[in-house]
Design a protein around this nucleic acid. Structure first.
Length: 463
RNA sequence: GGCCUCGUCGUCUAGCCUGGUCUAGGACGCAUCCCUUUCACGGAUGAAACACGGGUUCGAAUCCCGUCGAGGCUGCCA
């Protein structure tokens, strides 16, 4: 076996690339890059009935988007002859056998075992029969000693030593037929053939490990180092799954999360760098990454924290980059205009799609008359203020912020209330109770639109 | 039911291996205050956790045992 670090992820195209898979991929990738090893992507599509091209595309696109480029790529469906060879070998050696029980019989057995609170395992009576009989249709199982006293042991980098009793396993299935391997056989064969040094996967695979070890022994394969990552959980602390709306990575892109932010956030779900830094670039993550420091317990996916991380990355974006991205999300080609809005948006949005909150820069606002009222001021007072503001803007325009601000402040002093000046103007321009500074907005909108909106507001007060 | 894993603020976590420096630190979120024309930004402050019970020890979040709790697995899915 090579000394090189070789890791893989083996997503199945029966669903989108969700957070959990992405995090597993990330940890494999970080470990490979940290050790100058190879990161392998293997598509587990032997379940032809459930595998779909659109899911495969989603997985590939999601990984690419996150920046997790792979060094080698395989599809299980291309490797059927390889599995077949090993299945045949197991059969010939009598280590595996055909089981002729029907699914109904097996189901019934399972129910009875559960009812009797007995072991849930299938000890097959066909195990010791002559396997040289003609071509069979039955499922293929590995022959496991049901009376074994042995404990199957393995070391997990995160959890230490783990052991299972061999006799609890039963004769578990390894292939539907010689041409159709089942999961446990396929991974074992692939990991061996691909010379995988570390199997880094979710904690939900711990229970599969003893089966795989038995298979490795039967096939004479060397054991890789196992690393079981803690699960990523939903709000209710159960494994993140469809019922939590297991969203594809691509959805996060659509919402305006930055891939760098997602990688950063995911990297910290199950791992903490020694210095405790929270915002780390890909290369900093690679540098700091250490499997030994991976956490044991599951972590809830907290979108609020993701939002914060994403906001931090938005603040770090260059002006040009931000303008590009914002243009895309605002559906606008007018980059000069977006460029003006950008500084205001930058400190206010958590994700790019939040730019929709600034719709009033693109169309006239619609709002309730009452919103124009500053505190308990009368309609007349509000109208008076708007009239004065109108005059000032007619005179000065909106391009010279300093002057405009001075005049408006003067007006504020005159009216003995700055809010009376700025609040109605804000609402006139944005239709919102929370918005950027009115003078900033006026400059972006320009003299004409600003005056138009002030006049509309003036009319509205009287109505 | 059986097997396996896990258990520090609401959430992510530091500390645990190598007991004392932990009146348990940081971050997100939350609250209050400052700034202020609102929101955001920024600044300051605050509330908030060692699951429980035994044991070992001069001393336990840290070591041991038990209990409880949570999750995972228990497919002719992966």
């Amino acid at each position: 076996m090579a000394d090189e670090i070789r890791v893989r992820i083996a997503p199945s195209p029966t669903g989108f690339l969700h957070i959990g898979t992405a995090r597993t991929a990330l940890f494999n990738w970080l470990f490979a890059r940290h050790n100058s090893g190879k990161f392998i992507l293997r598509i587990e599509d032997t379940d032809l009935e459930r595998s779909e091209k659109r899911f495969e595309d989603d997985i590939l696109n999601g990984l690419k988007w996150l920046g997790l480029e792979w060094d080698e790529f395989y599809k299980q469906s291309d490797r059927i002859p390889i599995y077949s060879k090993y299945i045949q070998k197991l059969l010939e050696q009598g280590k595996a056998f055909h089981c002729y029980h029907t699914e109904e019989e097996l189901e019934k057995e399972g129910r009875e075992q559960l009812a009797k609170k007995g072991l849930q395992r299938h000890v097959c009576e066909y195990k010791n029969k002559d396997s040289s009989a003609p071509a069979h249709q039955g499922i293929i199982r590995l022959a496991v000693d049901e009376n074994s006293k042995r404990k199957i042991k393995f070391n997990d980098t995160v959890r230490g030593d783990i052991e299972f009793e061999e006799k609890l396993l039963g004769d578990f299935s390894i292939a539907k037929d010689v041409e159709t391997p089942l999961y446990n056989l396929a991974v074992v064969v692939d990991d061996y053939e691909m010379d995988i040094s570390h199997v880094i996967r979710g904690e939900d695979h711990i229970a599969n490990t003893p089966k795989q070890i038995l298979l490795m022994e039967a096939l004479g394969f060397e054991m890789p180092q196992f690393v079981h990552l803690p699960l990523i959980l939903g709000e209710d602390r159960s494994k993140l799954s469809k019922r939590h709306g297991a969203t594809s990575m691509i959805e996060y892109r659509k919402l305006g999360y930055l891939p760098e932010a997602l990688m950063n956030f995911l990297g910290l779900l199950g791992f903490t760098p020694p210095d405790g830094k929270e915002i780390l670039s890909a290369s900093e993550l690679i540098e700091a990454f250490d499997l030994v420091k991976v956490h044991k317990s599951g972590a809830i996916f907290d979108i609020k924290k993701l939002d914060w991380v994403n906001g931090e990355y938005i603040k770090k974006l260059s002006e040009a980059e931000l303008v590009d991205k914002l243009s895309e999300f605002a559906n606008s080609d007018n980059k000069d205009y977006i460029f003006k809005i950008m500084p205001l948006a930058r400190e206010r949005i958590k994700k790019l799609s939040d730019i929709s909150e600034f719709s009033y820069f693109f169309q006239n606002p619609d709002y309730d008359k009452e919103l124009l009222r500053w505190k308990s001021r009368s309609d007349e007072e509000v109208k008076k203020s708007l009239e004065e503001v109108e005059k000032i803007i007619e005179k000065l325009g909106t391009d010279e912020q300093g002057k405009l601000r001075n005049e408006l402040d003067e007006l504020g002093k005159k009216l003995e209330d700055r809010g009376l000046v700025y609040w109605p103007l804000r609402v006139a321009l944005s239709g919102q109770k929370a918005s950027p500074d009115p003078v900033d907005m006026a400059e972006i909108l320009g003299k004409e639109k600003t005056l138009e909106r002030v006049r509309v507001a003036k009319e509205l007060v009287l109505a």
